[in-house]
Design a protein around this nucleic acid. Structure first.
Length: 154
DNA sequence: GCCAACGTTGGC
DNA sequence: GCCAACGTTGGC
């Protein structure tokens, strides 16, 4: 059982948007980075827990928790010429990009801010606080998960 | 809006 | 297969 952190720009898709979906469930499309894709394709498994992180916004931080409810399958937006995620080099026979479905489990009453995360003892190995924090899907160790969860307002 | 840190692309 | 140019991410 692994733990994850998924980043999203709340202007595009926030935890409240997830909460408003039928069954509070949505596919996590638009991943166009190979390292992140490999995590999604090979390692993100049914039932695993995900921190929902808000990036590039006023309130940076972890907004809540979701759970993986469907393992990787082709991201349909790569075949749609109208989509900004369209990839002309991908084909349905040999899809390049995948996505998973997640369902909201818990929205924190307060966002666990990046500032706070950085201040926590034991959180210095996580991709978020390292240089080059650009990966939109990243693993979180079990120890880190518990530290972060224990320090959130939930 | 700036800029550092990367990832990707494409010419050679 | 190298590497410069370019695009994107994301905190500040």
């Amino acid at each position: 059982m692994k733990y994850w952190l998924f980043k999203s720009e709340p202007d595009a898709f926030s935890i409240d948007d997830l909460a408003a979906k039928p069954n509070q469930q949505e596919h996590w499309d638009g991943i166009r980075n190979y390292q992140a894709r490999n995590f999604l394709r090979d390692e993100v498994k049914l039932g695993e827990q995900v921190f929902f992180y808000h990036s590039s916004c006023k309130q940076l931080g972890i907004a809540g928790i979701a759970e993986v409810v469907k393992e990787s399958y082709p991201d349909h937006s790569q075949f749609d010429p109208e989509s900004k995620y369209f990839d002309p080099k991908s084909s349905p026979d040999n899809p390049r990009w995948v996505m998973v479905d997640i369902q909201l489990k818990e929205k924190f009453s307060e966002i666990l801010s990046l500032q706070k995360i950085k201040s926590l003892a034991g959180i210095n190995d996580i991709g978020l606080v390292k240089k080059g924090h650009r990966l939109s899907i990243m693993p979180v160790s079990e120890v880190e998960w518990h530290i972060l969860y224990d320090n959130s307002q939930h």
